[in-house]
Design a protein around this nucleic acid. Structure first.
Lengths: 139, 139
DNA sequence: TTGCGTGCAAAGGTTTTGCATGGCA
DNA sequence: TGCCATGCAAAACCTTTGCACGCAA
């Protein structure tokens, strides 16, 4: 069972950040881009607050955190269907950045194996497979 | 064709760094670990020099550079052309934060499957499995 | 001797932390 | 009213850059 810290208070900042992440329709952003976005929108949200909300959202599985290829800053991406995403692989292409949701029976086997053999309970909400996608492989 | 900058001068520092990377037999290290290693060995090599050598070695293909998800600092790993390095799973515990290196036959199967079925070339160097480790599960 | 290599210090960038204040329930 | 959330500033990190000196060829 994944332990999820509930959102205790609802605040303007928390709502704005989540709404904006949702509005991006799965595209990823960095903290810097978020800071700039709220500056441009003339909505005051401290950068520390943004860091803290993204961290919490990532811990709760609502968004994913990535570090792409040599980039210094982390990327964050909203995940729209939590229940469904628990049941498939996430493949992130290092080259083009696209995120692939792969439904696959192998997942169960990997999960079972890691638990049985390595005593490790994998959390598919947080786990991302990095590599090169089909499109980028053929170029 | 990859353009390879030749090593122009041979220096004590360059030799030591490459030798040490080779001696690790495919295990990865961070710059910080290298700095500490040479400090402990009482061999004076400036951190800047370490950065510059690793950058050059990476550009020349002798070592690989990557960033493990969620880690701030880059990892470097010597690549042996002849012997194919045994790669392994990285399991990161959400609870206690420890990183577990798990050598495992399942890896090959996962790799093969993702490539064959999903046309996705996974990069095991960058991929980290998140979850709960043995120790934390039993608490 | 030439010019790359080295190492110190400082700069640059990202993320985290401390703390007083603000605001939700 | 009790706490958590916020935001500023500072700290903590990791990495890069500038520059004078060292050293290999």
């Amino acid at each position: 069972m994944v332990h999820k810290r509930p959102e205790l208070y609802h605040t303007r900042q928390g709502r704005s950040i989540l709404d904006y992440m949702k509005s991006l329709e799965g595209k990823h952003v960095t903290i810097g881009q978020l800071v700039r976005h709220f500056e441009d929108a003339e909505e005051i949200i401290g950068q520390t607050t943004i860091y803290r909300h993204l961290e919490r959202l990532a811990a709760g599985g609502k968004i994913r955190k990535y570090t792409l290829n040599g980039s210094k800053s982390a990327c964050y991406q909203y995940m729209d269907d939590e229940k469904k995403c628990r049941e498939h692989f996430h493949l992130k292409c290092d080259v083009c950045g696209s995120l692939i949701h792969a439904d696959c029976d192998l997942l169960d086997e990997v999960e079972r194996h890691l638990l049985g053999r390595h005593k490790f309970q994998i959390n598919m909400l947080k786990t991302v497979f990095y590599g090169t996608c089909k499109k980028c492989l053929s170029q």
